[in-house]
């Protein structure tokens, strides 16, 4: 683990988490949520847990984003609160 790289990822992690909660457009929120998963995947890989990182990249960043987008498409795109 390189600590400068870790700090950078953690900062982006908090930023993406706040954005995905705050943004009104749910499609954008789903995409940012996928980015969040991918940053976590980088953290796992940095800590040497490559199998977990692989699962996070495929399930968290890949399929979850697609399923969220499919759900947004069939419901409403704008957040009510």
């Amino acid at each position: 683990m390189i600590w400068q790289f870790d700090i950078l990822i953690l900062i982006f992690l908090v930023v993406t988490a706040v954005i995905s909660l705050q943004v009104k457009d749910l499609l954008a929120a789903s995409m940012v949520f996928g980015t969040y998963s991918f940053l976590i995947c980088l953290l796992w890989a940095g800590m040497g847990a490559v199998d977990v990182a692989f699962t996070e990249a495929t399930v968290g960043a890949g399929i979850s984003a697609v399923i969220l987008i499919a759900t947004v498409y069939n419901t409403r795109r704008d957040s009510s609160d």
């Binding site: 490559v50 199998d51 990182a53 692989f54 699962t55 495929t58 399930v59 890949g62 399929i63 697609v66």
Partner: peptide, 13 residues
């Protein structure tokens, strides 16, 4: 690294 779960998800994707 890899296995049934990851490969299965990529195949499904």
């Amino acid at each position: 690294p890899g296995g049934g779960f990851q490969g299965g998800v990529i195949l499904g994707a």
